[in-house]
Computed example of a mutant assay.
Amino acid sequence: MTSKVNTIIFDLGGVLIDWNPEYVFLKAFQGDKEKTKWFLNNICTMDWNENQDEGYPISLGTEDLIEKFPQYENYIKMYYGEWENMIGGAIEGTVEILKTLIKTEKYKVVALTNWSSETFPIAQKRFEFLGWFEGIVVSGEEKTRKPNRDIFEITLKRFNIQPENSIFIDDNVRNIETAKSIGIHGIHFKTPELLVSELKKYNIKLP
């Protein structure tokens, strides 16, 4: 595959940062995996979380859910009350790839993330590499989110990116599909090792 790629767009959660609500709720439910899975699939769902990622205030999102499920009030409050404990750490293999790409000085490297603007500063304080990007588009600040087309268009315009010259890396296939529909090359992230192999297809060779 030949390409004139000059821009790499990284997702953050699941690609560079290990984030998982199970870290909090497995502990809350005393290691009961089935109960944890049920709670996250039925009460504090990803759809609900993404509403806050799209800019809805955390306090209101929490209140709304408590009103709907009052019997789970303490657990619902735990979601954002213990949010920082959902961060497992950096995905070091991908951080090394990011560092190498930036050091080559051949590529514009930016990030596009679904993240509440209220919790993103916590991640910024914790992870130095978030300061390496030319810029980061945060869904909560833009009041829209992936996989909506407009957040990709915001990213392209803000950083003067031509879609055909860029690659978007994300762990969520639906986001990759939107990127591709706009003309952005997409890589579905699974592991750092596979990411290196995928980047080689675009003539991006890493040591």
Rank of each mutant, 00 (worst) to 15 (best):
L40P: 00
T45F: 07
D47K: 03
E50D: 15
E50C: 01
D53N: 10
E54R: 14
E54S: 06
Y56R: 09
L60I: 10
T62A: 05
T62E: 15
L65V: 01
E67T: 03
P70T: 10
Q71I: 09
Y75R: 01
M78V: 02
Y79I: 03
Y80V: 04
Y80M: 07
Y80G: 08
W83P: 02
W83F: 14
W83Y: 13
N85M: 11
A90K: 13
I91F: 13
G93M: 06
K99R: 14
T100A: 15
K103V: 05
K103Q: 15
T104V: 06
T104R: 11
E105W: 08
E105M: 05
Y107R: 03
V110H: 12
L112H: 06
S117N: 11
E118P: 02
F120P: 03
P121Q: 13
P121H: 10
A123N: 08
Q124H: 09
Q124R: 11
Q124P: 00
E128Y: 06
L130G: 02
L130A: 05
L130P: 00
I136F: 05
V137Y: 03
K143D: 10
T144I: 02
N148I: 00
R149G: 00
I151S: 05
F152S: 04
I154F: 04
I154W: 08
I154C: 04
T155S: 05
K157M: 02
F159S: 03
N160M: 07
